[in-house]
Design a protein around this nucleic acid. Sequence first.
DNA 1: TAGGGCTTGATTGTCGACATTATTGACGAT
DNA 2: ATCGTCAATAATGTCGACAATCAAGCCCTA
Lengths: 223, 223
Amino acid sequence: MRVRPVPSDAYHRLREAIVAGQFHPNERLVEASIAEHIRAGRTAVRAALVRLDQEGLVTLEKNRGARVRHVSDSEALEIEEVRAALEGLLARRAATLVKPDDLRELHLVIKEMKARVDRGDSIGYSELNARFHQRIWAAADHPTAMRIVGGLKSQAIRFQYQTAMRPWRAERSLREHEAIFAALKAHDEDGAEEAMRAHLAEVLDTLRWAIAAQGHGGGWLPG
Amino acid sequence: MRVRPVPSDAYHRLREAIVAGQFHPNERLVEASIAEHIRAGRTAVRAALVRLDQEGLVTLEKNRGARVRHVSDSEALEIEEVRAALEGLLARRAATLVKPDDLRELHLVIKEMKARVDRGDSIGYSELNARFHQRIWAAADHPTAMRIVGGLKSQAIRFQYQTAMRPWRAERSLREHEAIFAALKAHDEDGAEEAMRAHLAEVLDTLRWAIAAQGHGGGWLPG
DNA sequence: TAGGGCTTGATTGTCGACATTATTGACGAT
DNA sequence: ATCGTCAATAATGTCGACAATCAAGCCCTA
């Protein structure tokens, strides 16, 4: 999908800074400070804040400024639920639209995942996971759903709950990815959607577990 | 859900004007004119435009101003697909969370619908339909999904394709609503989601039909 | 000493002016 | 006559300043 040329750089930099965790949840975002920090004028910062508010990454209250939005536990779960629903839709469409190239790439990613899992190397699994999902999104050719899923601050969640993936989850996650791949290869719409939703239901459970045992671990969100 | 106090009125008025069709698709939105038309300063208009761009109602290109976004046929279908996915999720949650009050209200709406259908009165069916769905949203208690569905410019679609609902569709739509209601009453998660998705799949078909036979009819989008 | 109102400092909201950029139309060359 | 170039115009992007608003600390009173 073509990236729109509008968000004026300041938006991008501020967004990056937030999802990278440079600002803490609920931290106050003073326009002047940010303008300095981002190396931009206050006007641009204002526009960026409006955009980020609409996107849900910050809250903007009249005359009271902006804060990084704290993602509550329940909201984190809600976000993942929405993601599951939409990625299910994307997987369904992808099942009819995947091209050989896509399948090759997906297969490659899975092979790499398997290698990592075999030697217990969980570093970089997250990136592979992202590659897997994003390839499916691309294959689905559904800009609307993609736009929404992309703007869903899953990244923020990933940062806030830096805890989810456990080694013993990796194997299961791998099997789920294989199931998705198989359904896509067979052009099985129902199967693909179901497999994707099952996968993300697992992710949801993992997130619930992470929330319950908050603050204990390190690792990554599977996907 | 509590409405946030931020969008500075100018946003609301401009949004209303757009979805009400006061500006034509692809019409250029000149900040000065709008500022006058809306009775607001250019600054506020600018903020509103950024917000509406993020929301997808207008496109904003650097140094080239804003236009009301023309919703292409394929995008209209995509939007309805997303809506189906998310309303499916909402229906599922509602199935476990509905309270007697909700069920009473829903039953009432259906009864009213039936009355209208019986005497061939399709006027106002759209409002009843909206009431039905919104009550389910409220019961689902899922702010995230609600926010997204609400920002989905289905209204714009409804305006652009002022054609969809036919009398003979009304009966079918009614039966579908009854099925949803029954599943909710029985607290049947899977059933509710499935019924809702089936219903919206019908809506999608209707929309496809409307697109194919563009420009022939008047009526309303079912829901 | 506790509470309420007020002053003060800081931050946001708005406006006007100006620089920057696209678009339109005319003009001239081929 | 058509195309390319260039000036004129209109609209947007940005900046600085000022007004409006909020939060906090202070003082005064009971």
